[in-house]
Design a protein around this nucleic acid. Sequence first.
DNA 1: CCTAGATTGTTCAAATCTAAACTTTCCTGA
DNA 2: TCAGGAAAGTTTAGATTTGAACAATCTAGG
Lengths: 164, 164
Amino acid sequence: MARVSTDIEAPLSKVRSGAKLELRLWLRMLACVNLVSAELRRRLRSRFDVTLPQFDVLAQLEREPDGLKLVELSRRLMVTKGNLTGLVDTLVEAGLVAREAVPGDRRAQNIRLTRGGTDQFSRMAAAHEAWLAELLGELDRKTLVSLIDELDQVKRSFHLHARR
Amino acid sequence: MARVSTDIEAPLSKVRSGAKLELRLWLRMLACVNLVSAELRRRLRSRFDVTLPQFDVLAQLEREPDGLKLVELSRRLMVTKGNLTGLVDTLVEAGLVAREAVPGDRRAQNIRLTRGGTDQFSRMAAAHEAWLAELLGELDRKTLVSLIDELDQVKRSFHLHARR
DNA sequence: CCTAGATTGTTCAAATCTAAACTTTCCTGA
DNA sequence: TCAGGAAAGTTTAGATTTGAACAATCTAGG
């Protein structure tokens, strides 16, 4: 019908490239993210003695000077609330973040960077951004912009089709 | 003057906005992979009672009818060997994969799908591919091809700049 | 032959992560 | 006012993951 197969003549040996484009795209995205994540994790660990999930929490909090509720943090980081409980515990013990009461809601808590956490994070963030500029250094501006735009389309498509 | 370098960099103002672009690209990639991963994990769990890491192992093995050594599997999945030991244990107990001796190397072991593992996986793989086609359904062929190509550039850039 | 170094897989501790059950607190509508 | 349900965090059990140390085995020089 609408979709015309362009590889009718494809030999059976090329199972990989014969797969649906959507699957191939997914495997590429996964590979890129795994590669870069692993390298960033190694560098954060050896240079700043911080884990990648801990860095991710700090990075989200740094954008919100007034702090975030745990639930909002879990939404933005796309991890479960239960996961964050322990992660935040660790960062509180390290003195990098603090828990505060939320006026008017005794269930909730506000989590924000401490002064020390802000200082530490600013050094990490600078290195983190420089590492990314290095690792993705071969991509020209046009490609970067195109990728960002197309990944936004991926996100939109996902939200249109994923239930809940 | 100490600030001559500023003038030299001035014509290359692209560098500064380029650095920001790379960070933005990274955050987009991360978000897309996290979103899709979470959805695939949910569906694999509820429909086939299999975890995403287990599925990933089976998917790699399915491509290699003769099986793979554990080290090679860990390279392709980009996880540590220690991780795979337990993961393969689980799949062996479930009867989906089998360990074999490697002739000529008593250290190594060959891991391959069992007949039952092959059958089970083929059903999962079909659903998995259909889910991706659904979730990424808004992207036209041109965008898919463009993304795949540009993500290959990301991979190449990474390998040029990541040490080891 | 023999030994230093590399490779393969396991084990361990600590951290991360999910999913689900649970407690406490808030909110809404009848 | 007051159930009933929704929301915020915690806890728990189980699985995943890393990083490092380790034993067994292979390989290559000398």
